[in-house]
Write a protein that binds this DNA or RNA. Structure first.
Lengths: 347, 347
DNA sequence: ATGAAAGCGCTAACAT
DNA sequence: ATGTTAGCGCTTTCAT
C-alpha cells in the first residue's frame, strides 16, 4: 500500500454486495427486491434491511437486459411549448403511475426527419410501448413502428391510416363543426388566422374541414393571416390588426389556437369593436388557463387529458396481456363551446 | 413442420444478425455502428448497408450494461403545468442535443416523498447526471444524490445548501427587489396573492424577501389571499375580487405568478380601476406568452431557459471530462421589468 | 424456500 | 484494420 494508490473506480452497489452483507444468495435477494412471494418473512426482512442500510439501488439496465423487458413507454410529441402537449402528458402519467410503466418523452419538433431520429433513439431502449402524436410520419418511421413489435398508439388525430392503434378527434370534423356554428350564427365575412400549415397537419385538416363546410353554406374564407414561431397574446394581436387593416369588413375571425384568439379578442375589445355583435371570434383547443378573459372565446375542446389517458390505457393493457398490438380506434368527440364570442345578438 | 407450429417469439435483431448478414465480425459491426475511425471505408459501407436493409436498431440496454455508461440525464421538476418548467426543459434540450446525452424527465409534484420515489427510479437507470429543481429534499433523497457519484445540478433557487452544483436566482432577493421597486414607486397598502406556500419553497422565499424588504421601508403587507390548485386567469380574477372586497383601499397587488397577475389585471380593468395610478400590480416569472395584455404587468424574469442551458452545460462538461461533480454555483440575476403597472403617474 | 448455472446483447481489453 | 475473449449485473431456468 503506497501513499498514492489511485482511488478505485467507484462502482455502484450490486446485488452481490447485498447478498454478501445479508448472507443470502443473490437469487434470493433478487426475489425479495422484486417482491416475489416465495421468500420467508425472515429472509425478506434481513435482505430489505441490508439493502436499505447500504443504499442499494437496483440496476434496471442489467435487469432489463436479463429479463428482456423494459418498463418504459416512449412518448413522441412535437413540442412542449404548445400547452396541449404537457396536458396530454399529464393524462398519460396519471394512468401509468398505477402501473410499473414509466413514460419517456421525445420531441419531434413538427419535423419528420427529426422525428425519425428521435424514434430510433427511443426504440434503442426497447420500450414496452410507444405513443406518438399524429398520423403523418416518414416511411422509415412507419417501418420502424411496424417492425418494433410493440403496441403503438398514434394520438391527437383520427384522419388517416394508423400503424396500430389511434386515439383522438377528427380535426376535419372539428373544423367543419366550427364552420357550421359560425354560419348558423349568421357571420358571413370570415378571416382565418393560424400557423403556416405545411408543418402542422392537424391545423391543415381543420382548415380543410372548415373551408369545406363553409363552401357547403356558400361561404368562402375572405382572407388569411399565417404565422410561424411561438403563439402568444402578442402574436394574436398583431395578426388581428394586420388582417383587419386589409379587410375592415370582416365579421368573424377564426384562429388556429386559443392563445392567439385571446390576443385577438383583447385587440378587438381595445379597439372598441363590439364582440360578438360586430365581430365574432373562435379559437381551438379549449385551454382552461384562459377562462377569465373579459369574454370567453368560442373554442373546441380536443380532450387532451383524455387522449393521454386512453392511449396509456391501451399500452398498459397490451403490456399486461403480453400483446404486441391492440388495433384499437378510439374516436373522441370534439366539444364545441360557443363561449361569448359566437352569437350575434338578436337584431 | 406441422400446420400449428407456434410462431417463434419474435426477438429483435442483434449485432450478431448484422454480423452474419454482412460477413463481418460482431466487434467490427459494433465499431461501425458507433462511428469508430479504425474501420475501412469498404467494411463500413457493407455493414451500414446490411444494418439499414434489415432495420437493425442497436440495443442501448445491452450497450449500457457492457460499457457501464448510460447517456441519460435525469431531470426532476415539480410539474409540467406551470409553464416555467417546460421552458427550463427546452433550455436543457437545446444543450443536450449537441451531445450524446438525452434528458429523461420525472415529476416530483412538489411532494418530497414522491420526489424520493422518482429519484430512486431515475437512479436505477444509472444516468450520467441529474438535474433537480429546488434545494429542499428529503434526507433520503439527499443521501441518494450524494451517493450516486454523478454530477448533480440543483436548479431554480440559490438560497440553501446544494448537494453539488446549483444554477438559479435568489428568490429572496427577487422578492426584495420587487418590494423596493413597489415602495419606491410610492405604493403603500399592499396585498399579496399567491400559492399556499408549504408546498412551494421558492414562493415562500420570495415572500420572505418581499416582506423583509418592505419592513425596512416601514411597510407591512396589508392582506393576503392564498390558493391551491392550478393557476389561470380565472383564479387571478377571483382572488383579486376577494381581496379587494375585504380591503378596498389596497393600492398594490403582488401576485406569485404572471398568470394570476394577468387575471387580476383584467379584473381591475374590467372594474374600471385606474392601473397603475389607483392600483399597481406585479407578477413573477416573466412569461412572454402574456405580452399582449392591455397593459404589461410588472414582473421578474427568472431566466428559465438560461437556467436549463447552464445546468445542462455543467452536466455535459462533467460527463465529457469524466468528473463526478462540478461544485459550480451559477447565480443569475433576476431581472425586474416594471412593465406598465408599477409606476404612479406624476401627481 | 433457496441456490447454481447460463446467458441477455453488447463493449473493453487485448490479441493479431 | 479486424478478431477473440471475457464479462457488465441482473433474471431465467432448473435443481434441491
Amino acid at each position: 500500500m503506497t501513499l498514492s494508490d489511485p482511488p478505485p473506480p467507484r462502482r455502484s452497489l450490486t446485488l452481490r454486495d447485498v447478498s454478501e452483507a445479508s448472507g443470502v444468495s443473490e437469487m434470493t435477494v433478487s426475489r425479495v427486491l422484486r417482491g416475489s412471494a416465495d421468500v420467508s418473512a425472515k429472509t425478506r426482512a434481513r435482505v430489505l434491511a441490508a439493502a436499505k442500510q447500504m443504499g442499494y439501488v437496483p440496476n434496471k439496465i442489467a435487469g432489463g437486459l436479463a429479463s428482456q423487458r423494459v418498463n418504459l413507454v416512449g412518448v413522441i410529441i412535437p413540442s412542449l411549448s404548445n400547452m396541449v402537449f404537457p396536458e396530454v402528458l399529464s393524462g398519460i402519467n396519471e394512468v401509468l403511475e398505477a402501473t410499473p410503466l414509466q413514460a419517456v418523452v421525445g420531441l419531434s419538433r413538427y419535423d419528420p426527419p427529426h422525428e425519425e431520429r428521435v424514434l430510433y433513439e427511443m426504440l434503442s431502449w426497447r420500450p414496452s410501448g410507444l405513443i406518438v402524436a399524429g398520423l403523418e410520419h416518414s416511411e422509415a418511421s412507419r417501418a420502424m413502428l411496424r417492425a418494433a413489435d410493440i403496441p403503438v398508439v398514434e394520438i391527437m388525430d383520427l384522419d388517416g391510416e394508423p400503424v396500430d392503434s389511434v386515439v383522438g378527434i377528427s380535426h376535419r370534423r372539428a373544423g367543419a363543426d366550427m364552420a357550421r356554428a359560425i354560419a348558423a350564427a349568421g357571420y358571413r365575412r370570415i378571416g382565418f388566422l393560424g400557423t403556416k400549415m405545411p408543418m402542422d397537419h392537424r391545423a391543415r385538416k381543420r382548415f380543410e374541414g372548415f373551408t369545406g363546410a363553409l363552401a357547403r353554406e356558400g361561404i368562402e374564407v375572405t382572407d388569411h393571416e399565417f404565422y410561424s414561431g411561438g403563439s402568444g397574446l402578442a402574436k394574436g394581436r398583431e395578426m388581428t390588426r394586420a388582417i383587419l387593416e386589409r379587410n375592415p369588413d370582416l365579421d368573424f375571425l377564426y384562429y388556429s389556437n386559443d392563445m392567439i384568439a385571446a390576443g385577438g379578442l383583447l385587440y378587438c375589445l381595445g379597439e372598441g369593436i363590439d364582440v360578438p355583435g360586430r365581430m365574432g371570434l373562435a379559437g381551438f383547443n379549449g385551454i382552461e388557463l384562459l377562462d377569465g378573459l373579459p369574454l370567453r372565446p368560442a373554442t373546441i375542446d380536443i380532450r387532451r387529458r383524455e387522449i393521454g389517458r386512453k392511449a396509456a390505457e391501451i399500452i398498459a393493457d397490451c403490456v399486461q396481456r403480453g400483446l404486441a398490438s391492440a388495433h384499437a380506434r378510439i374516436a373522441l368527440d370534439p366539444v364545441l363551446d360557443p363561449g361569448d364570442t359566437l352569437r350575434k345578438p338578436p337584431a
